[in-house]
Amino acid sequence: MAYIPKSLVFHFLLRLPVKSLARFQCIDKEWLSLISDPHFIYTHLKRAQTANDFRLLLSFISHGNVSTTIKFITINEYGLAGSDYSVHINSDSYRVLPSCNGLVCFYGVKGRIYICNPAIRNMVKLPGDDAKGSILLSCGFGFDPQACRYKVIRMSDSGPFKAPGDSKMDIFTMGTCSWRNVKYDERFRFLNRQPPVHASGFFYWITANNGSKGYMIASFDIGNETFEAIPPPKSLSGKNWPMFCLGELGGDLALIDMDFASEGKRRMDLWLLKEASGDENKKTWVKESIIHPSQPLDATRPEALDHGGSKVLLHGFIRGSDAFLNWYNLGTGSFRRFEIQEITSPFFHVGAHVESLAQLDG
C-alpha cells in the first residue's frame, strides 16, 4: 500500500462528517490516535462551525412509568432528518439546554445533570446529585475558549424551608470530579428558574437590581469566573422588563423585547450584543426587528439564525399557520414555513447545532 503523508491524511479527515470519522477510528491504531487527538477534534469543530452547513437539533421528551426518554434529531437546511439518538434516564422533570460545540446538557429538578454528544452517542452523568432535600433551580452549560474547557453552573436551594439567602451557586469543570462554590455579586437578585444563556464564553441572566428598582443583565465570565453588569440599550428605559427574555443567536447574546402590546403584539425587537467595529474588547447593541403584518408574535421565540445571518428561525404559534417553525427574512420582512416531517408535536426544543467529536470526560 502506498505511503500517505500524515499531514495529508489529517487534512483529508478534516473534511469528513463525524459519523464517518467515528467509523474510521476502527481502521487502525494510528487513525484512532489521530481522530481522537484534541487538536484534531478542535480543528474539525472550528472548520464545521465556519462551513456553510446549517443544522438544527430537535429534542423531544417523553415520560414512562419509571424512566424518561429524550430523543435528539438533527435537521439540515432543507428540513430533512439526519442522525437520531435517544437516552433513557431516571424519571424526572427535565430541561434541555442549547447545544454547545455539539454537546448537549440536560438536567432535572431532583439534581441530576447529564452531558451527551448525540453525534458519537455518548453520555455522562455529573456527580453531586445526592444532596437530600435540595432542589435544582437552574443550570447552564458553556465553553471557556481560553482554556478549552467546558463548565456547568447550577443554582439550587434546600427546599421550601430554606432560610433567606440560602440559595447557592456552584460550578463544575468537565474533567474534574467535584463542584466549587461561586460567590455571586450582591447587586444581582436572580428571579426565577430560567437558566442562564451561554454566548461566546459568558453566561447571562436578566436579574433584579438589589440596590434599586428595576432590572439589569448579569454576565459571568466562564474563564475567570467573575460577574459584571451589562448596561441594556438606553432606549429600553421605562419598558416592561417581564416582557423581555435572553437568547443566543449566531454566537451573540440576544435581548428579546416583546413589550409591544400597543402594536397588537405583532412585533418583537432583537438586540444583539456584538463586538464594536475595530475594538474586540468593546461591545455594542445592534437592533433587528421582526414584524408580522397581522398576527401577534408573543407565542413565538427566536431560536437560530441561518448561516448567512439574514433569516431568523421562530419557534411557536402564529395564528393562521399550522407550522411550529417559521423563517423570518430580516431583509424582506417576509415569513416562510419551515416544514419538518418528523415533527408530530409542538412540544420540543430546537436550536442551532454543529456535530462534533468532542469527548466527554466528566
Rank of each mutant, 00 (worst) to 15 (best):
I343G: 04
S262D: 15
A81P: 02
G111S: 02
P118E: 12
G133D: 07
H307L: 11
K287H: 10
I222D: 09
D166T: 01
S237D: 13
T74P: 04
P164L: 09
C116W: 01
L80T: 06
S62R: 13
S178I: 02
L136N: 04
V182T: 07
G250Q: 06
W205S: 09
G247T: 04
F347C: 14
A358H: 09
V87H: 05
R336K: 10
F220S: 06
K151N: 04
V66H: 15
F161D: 15
Y204V: 02
T300V: 07
G278T: 01
R337D: 14
G264N: 06
N209P: 00
E228T: 08
I217P: 01
H39A: 10
R23V: 12
N329Y: 00
S91N: 15
F324W: 13
R15C: 12
C148H: 15
G214P: 08
D37R: 03
Y107G: 02
I343C: 09
I230Q: 01
K110Q: 15
T332G: 08
F220N: 05
D259E: 13
H39C: 10
A208K: 14
H307C: 13
Y150C: 06
H292E: 04
V18K: 06
S178N: 15
R337Y: 05
H315I: 03
L126V: 00
K265D: 15
F172V: 02
G308Q: 11
I70T: 06
G351I: 00
I230E: 10
L360E: 10
L34E: 11
D306K: 00
T50F: 04
F12N: 13
P346C: 10
G250M: 06
K29T: 12
A254R: 09
T50N: 10
N326C: 10
Q194R: 12
F227W: 02
V182L: 14
L14Q: 13
S91C: 11
M268R: 05
L58F: 05
K19Q: 13
H353S: 03
H88G: 12
L297N: 07
